[in-house]
Design a protein around this nucleic acid. Structure first.
Length: 683
DNA sequence: CTAGGGTTAG
């Protein structure tokens, strides 16, 4: 590129427009050299432009070198400083930008209203609250803290650093606000889960006559979680002509999906003339979160047919979908895709895969993935710990927890993982030790979930009265999980009085959960209190709560077979039932006694026993025995908690057949080997 | 020269 000599002012203009036209680092360097050859003394304006352009082309170190060797007459120009700060921040050199600001304070140069937004952005990205609030003070002293751009930056800085109420205070005190102030504040509300407040702000904004733009509706849409509100927001979107914007359309789609209107989400999806990757990812994720695994997988196939390659977000959505299906085949297939195609974001994907393997019962693979992970964070540790917990490996979980404690401060969820692992494994002393250390050693306040684990632990030990006392002494309000744990313990230890206490709260707190009614009714039935059992079932019906049909599935050679109680839909039904009959006879000889309290109550005893035999768990196990090679283990999955009678029967089956049987219930895994179960008969 | 802005693991 050649630089032509013209009159000085023209030269300067041309020069700057030439600088701006450079779109590669190489062309900029050539131009820079030729400018230096032609002009002896580079003026401030051109110098700044060159630095700015080096930064925007990514050569921040070059820009910084130029800046450091600048002419002494440019020394205290704030524009130049701002450009340098912007360059650093844009290139994610946040720390460096803050250091430069610190140096600036010792020089005769004052920050202006442009300076603060750059620096606050750096603090926000670094989550450096300390520096952020110092900058707030400086901005105040220099008189810029109410300036719209500065205040907007403060809002998002505080929001990112975890101080929602500081954001709110800045917002409330602003003498005037721009659309950006509103959308930043609404965004903060959605980030902190204050959805109603966010929607309220959005409405207020509209009432003040401010025309919504892209960002504001995106943030408002993220606050929508109810079917009634979603169409209203969508109308605002359409009325303001924002419905053709890609990101807005994707956000609307997700909004409908979140509110349970998968149909409307799909309609929007189908309406996209051009579907980008985010669009596919969002729809697949919508299906996965709605437990529509097969739809998610189907859509993924369609995506592949259009030659669109998945990214980590798509894979995460698929992992979610597979965890419902619990297919270890699919898990491995996905894992292969990750290893081959997605070397980035490995921590997140590996953690998700780890969790998936655990949920599919592939403990060995999970362990392998964890062992090979290059880095670990609190999430991956917790995942592995709760995975061990689900399988009843309390010792391994504790060992891992100890290792983790040396490296990271456990958070609330980490404690849920370890406490539930202790309760699943019956490690009572260890559980108490963990619980006591929470607040004492780590400053983590126990929440309801942690108490629920402890109730489970006490219940397992049969200390039901202590469990109740513990609940009464809880500093937080016991939730459904806590009472549910007590009710479960009452079922195991046959305590109808306490069951009634627990149910008293539970049937209000968790009124729409059918499992609670069924459990209580079973407890009554096991005490022969037919009338009470019947009443509970009636209460459930009158409240319009539908019982979830129990079903068990088993995978044979990549195909998934599902059974419900008394199922006769399998083509090999006759064989299954005749084998089932033989097997039941065999385990009876071994000492199995059917527990009729798990059958329906209003039929004859003989029929009840037949119905018990035909429970979905038993059908799936028998099918597995028929279809799999001798000696191989059998894996089945149930959508609900495993039935007590099936649990007993499975123990006997594992003994008489010599097979390992792995059952995934809704709460945990049961490994049956030679007549015993890993749960220690507390499920 | 400045702020907000679609999907992401326990």
């Amino acid at each position: 590129m050649q630089f032509k000599k013209k009159t000085p002012s023209k030269v300067e203009d041309t020069c700057i427009s030439l600088i701006k036209k450079c779109n590669t680092l190489k062309s900029l360097k050539t131009l820079h050299a030729s400018i230096l050859r032609t002009v002896v003394h580079l003026d401030l304006h051109r110098f700044t432009n060159i630095i700015s352009h080096y930064a925007s082309l990514g050569s921040i170190s070059y820009a910084y070198t130029l800046f450091s060797h600048r002419d002494s007459s440019f020394f205290s120009d704030d524009f130049l400083w701002n450009i340098m700060l912007r360059g650093l921040v844009d290139n994610t050199y946040y720390h460096r930008s803050l250091l430069l600001y610190t140096r600036m304070q010792y020089l005769p140069i004052a920050p202006d209203n442009f300076t603060f937004p750059f620096l606050l952005k750096a603090c926000a990205s670094l989550r450096n609250l300390n520096m952020g609030s110092q900058l707030h003070a400086h901005a105040f002293i220099y008189g810029y803290s109410s300036q719209v751009f500065v205040a907007n930056s403060l809002i998002s800085m505080y929001a990112k650093c975890g101080l929602f109420y500081f954001s709110k205070r800045v917002f409330d005190k602003m003498p005037q606000r721009s659309i950006v102030s509103w959308s930043a504040m609404i965004g903060a509300c959605s980030q902190y889960g204050f959805h109603d407040q966010g929607l309220l702000l959005f409405t207020r904004m509209l009432n003040e006559g401010i025309k919504p733009n892209r960002a504001s509706v995106l943030n408002a849409a993220a606050c929508v979680w109810s079917e009634e509100v979603a169409p209203r927001i969508h109308r605002v979107v359409v009325d303001n002509g924002l419905h053709n914007d890609h990101s807005v359309r994707n956000a609307s789609m997700l909004m409908f999906g979140r509110c349970g209107r998968i149909d409307l989400a799909r309609t929007l999806f189908d309406g996209f003339a051009y579907k980008d990757l985010v669009c596919w990812a969002s729809m697949i994720d919508t299906y996965a979160r709605a437990d529509l695994s097969l739809e998610a997988l189907h859509l993924f196939n369609e995506m592949r047919l259009q030659c669109i390659f998945p990214d980590s977000v798509v894979i995460l959505a698929l992992i979610q979908a597979c965890s419902i299906l619990a297919s270890s085949h699919l898990a491995r297939a996905l894992h292969v895709v990750i290893i081959r195609c997605l070397p980035d974001s490995r921590l997140m994907l590996d953690t998700a895969v780890l969790d998936l393997y655990m949920k599919c019962g592939s403990l060995a693979y999970a362990r392998k993935v964890f062992g090979k992970m290059k880095e670990n964070n609190i999430i991956s540790w917790s995942t592995m710990i709760s995975g061990y917990g689900m399988h009843g490996y309390g010792g391994e979980a504790l060992c891992l927890f100890d290792q983790m404690k040396a490296l990271r401060k456990p958070d609330q969820i980490a404690f849920v993982s370890i406490l539930s692992a202790c309760s699943h494994a019956g490690l009572i002393t260890e559980g108490w030790e963990c619980f006591n250390s929470m607040e004492r050693d780590f400053g983590v306040k126990p929440k309801s979930e942690h108490y629920a684990c402890m109730i489970d632990l006490l219940g397992r030990a049969g200390q039901l009265n202590q469990a109740l006392e513990f609940i009464e002494r809880m500093p937080v309000k016991p939730d459904a999980g806590v009472w549910g744990a007590l009710l479960g313990a009452c079922r195991i230890h046959s305590n109808v009085e306490l069951a009634e206490v627990a149910a008293g709260s539970l049937l209000d707190l968790d009124a729409e959960n059918p499992g609670r009614y069924v459990l209580l009714s079973n407890i009554y039935a096991s005490f022969g209190k037919r009338k009470e059992a019947y009443n509970i079932r009636n209460l459930m019906k009158s409240r319009g709560v539908k019982k979830i049909v129990g079903q068990t599935s088993i995978q044979i050679k990549g195909n998934i077979y599902t059974f419900v109680s008394g199922d006769r839909s399998n083509p090999e039904t006759d064989l299954i039932y005749s084998e089932l009959g033989k097997l039941m006879e065999r385990i009876r000889q071994e000492g199995y006694v059917p527990d009729l309290s798990f059958a329906l109550h209003d039929v004859e005893e003989e029929t009840r026993e037949m119905m018990l035999y035909a429970h979905s768990e038993k059908l799936a196990i028998v099918f597995g025995l028929i279809k799999s090679g001798y000696g191989s283990s059998i894996r089945i999955m149930k959508n609900l908690r495993v039935c007590g009678d099936c649990h007993t029967a499975t123990k006997f089956i594992s003994k008489v057949t010599g097979r390992e049987i792995v059952v995934r219930g809704s709460q945990r895994f049961h490994h049956f080997v030679n007549g015993t179960c890993s749960c220690g008969d507390y499920w």
